[in-house]
Design a protein around this nucleic acid. Structure first.
Lengths: 336, 336
DNA sequence: CACACGGATTTGAACGTTCAAATGATTCTG
DNA sequence: CAGAATCATTTGAACGTTCAAATCCGTGTG
């Protein structure tokens, strides 16, 4: 089904059909309706390759998939879904690609742009020393990152979750639920994300005058968390609570708690971070990242960049949303 | 960088450049080398939109993303990565799309084909009554499924994991490790996948003459598994083992075991299914699906269909691979 | 030495779309 | 009522590629 077939059916020229879709105000109302009828009747949809060729724009955004399947899988994979949902709103589609292990790091990026398969990228799993932002900027290829850009203070095309606000909300929630001893399990000091999340907890427990606020740290992982959870559980005691920097850590703590015969909620308040499926299935209260809004923001940014607009004046932080689960219900059915 | 610029640089016509890439045997050796030099020097890569337009083929495969983020997330999301890795080998790329909740079920499929964004689909999360296979076949749009096709016995364009072989390997492994009482936790009878997995365990434990083989069933979910795990643990007793139909179920059993103070391995042998990240992080022995091979097979099938080849004579089953973890080490450091 | 033959290379056309310019139809103005 | 102005519509050209047909050029043959 091509534009010419529609034109023939509606007894107009191909350009009138084109105008009907792109500049309806240029077409006389009567003709407009008639053409629209033909379009609907024939189910015409313009061919993407033709438009891409004509416009010299792919209308697509590249997305490197290596990260999915890594430790941060819980976040990046739902984020990809959020991007796919948001894409139609920005008149674009996604092209995921995986740079094979054997090939140069950035080959996937250069190939997809050079072949005009994509005209911009969404980066995930950005980290200090990440070569991608500078590499792309040097070639003036538009990009936006989910996650802060550590290399370059001046970079503004990024969106991230407000970890501080998240753990603050977690601490608020625990106090509200009646927990009086609130610990924190995070990652070793030095990672900006981790420090941010720790600080939200620290400031907020202080604000509420919580007395017992032990903390511990370990690498991201369930076994790692279980290993260091002991002293933390001792410190907050039965009936205390722990805020974790990630859902994996929370699950590790859960295992440690179960091993001592503590049950989630009454014996231990527990809050994770990221809104992973597993946390939900375990009944752990968690901080859900607003991935739909973040995805929308990312696509809006690259869309504007492609239209030649100036980059935003700063990166964007999005507050996570606390989803209460059984793990923070202190009195399942009863009065305080 | 277009073919014309390369042609000018190499002092030949555009068609010679085209032939250099597509039919090198038509080009005189001397010219060939000279043109190749220009191509390398200028870093030319043919434009995908042009080729798509000319060939009337997108060279892309559609992939519906709704399923990712669902309960089967653990499998579909790594499968997408496997597809992305395999895609370059089949000279194609992926176009993931999400049918928004508000819109008709199959709109994503019809739009992407009509716009020539994709020319085939890989289906996941197929289920009895799935409208997609017939809908696509009626329109003679090539497709292949990861998961059996329940509607249509005659369908052969699918690949799936051999659940029976998987749980059989699991039972073998447990016997080999010295476990003498081996139970099974699966899904309610009726789901073909679940029944298949149950049977592998049943047949193999019988073969080894295992005496104590209790079983139980519940819906897919961690809490659900924990809820029904009690009697099963009682039946196999301390030092027994349990094979599960999925990793989520295994984690549910793990929680029940931890609550009784049992430790994985010595007190309870535990095996999950699917090779999820979480199972790995929990140290649970699991059956990893060969997603890379399955992805490769799927893309090969649609590629052949697009070339007009006849569909395969039957669907393909792939045996999962058992990855041993601490959860099936009966004697951490010692003799039997 | 004219001529057919073969391989190497070039030119024309087309894929479906949209921009720019040209044409056609209508109304307004003097 | 001729001519200008405005609006609606059509035609030509181009995006980069590849297929098909045409041209070129050196060789061997009658």
């Amino acid at each position: 089904m091509t534009i010419n077939e529609v034109a023939a059916h509606a007894h107009v020229s191909r350009q009138t059909v084109s105008n009907t879709l792109n500049f309806p105000e240029r077409v006389r109302p009567g003709t407009l309706e008639q053409v629209r009828e033909s379009i609907d009747l024939l189910g015409y949809q313009p061919s993407a390759p033709s438009q891409q060729l004509r416009h010299q724009r792919a209308g697509a955004v590249g997305f490197e998939l290596n990260a999915v399947g890594s430790t941060r899988n819980d976040v990046t994979s739902p984020f990809l879904v959020a991007l796919a949902v948001a894409a139609p709103r920005h008149a674009c589609h996604l092209v995921p690609f995986a740079s094979g292990d054997a090939r140069p790091m950035l080959s996937g990026y250069s190939e997809t742009v050079q072949r005009h398969l994509v005209d911009a990228f969404v980066l995930v799993d950005t980290h200090p020393g990440d070569p991608r932002p500078t590499w792309l900027s040097e070639r003036s290829i538009p990009w936006v990152a989910f996650g802060r850009i550590w290399n370059d203070e001046a970079a503004t095309t990024w969106a991230d979750v407000d970890g501080r606000a998240g753990t603050a909300a977690a601490a608020d929630h625990l106090v509200e639920q009646g927990y009086e001893r609130i610990g924190f399990l995070g990652w070793p000091t030095g990672s900006a994300v981790g420090d941010d999340r720790r600080e939200g907890w620290a400031v907020t427990t202080a604000k509420h005058g919580v007395d017992v606020t032990p903390q511990a740290a370990c690498e991201q992982g369930i076994a790692e968390a279980t290993a260091v959870a002991g002293p933390l559980l001792d410190a907050v005691g039965r009936g205390g609570a722990i805020v974790c920097a990630s859902d994996a850590l929370a699950i590790g703590v859960l295992h440690a708690a179960l091993s001592r015969g503590w049950s989630l909620g009454p014996d231990l308040g527990l809050i994770g971070f990221d809104g992973s499926n597993t946390a939900d299935m375990c009944g752990i209260t968690t901080l859900v990242q607003p991935l739909d809004r973040i995805a929308d923001h990312c696509l809006a940014v690259v869309h504007d960049l492609l239209d030649g607009a100036a980059p935003p004046t700063s990166g964007s932080l999005f507050e996570p949303h606390l989803i209460p689960g059984p793990s923070t219900i202190r009195n399942p059915k009863g009065t305080p």
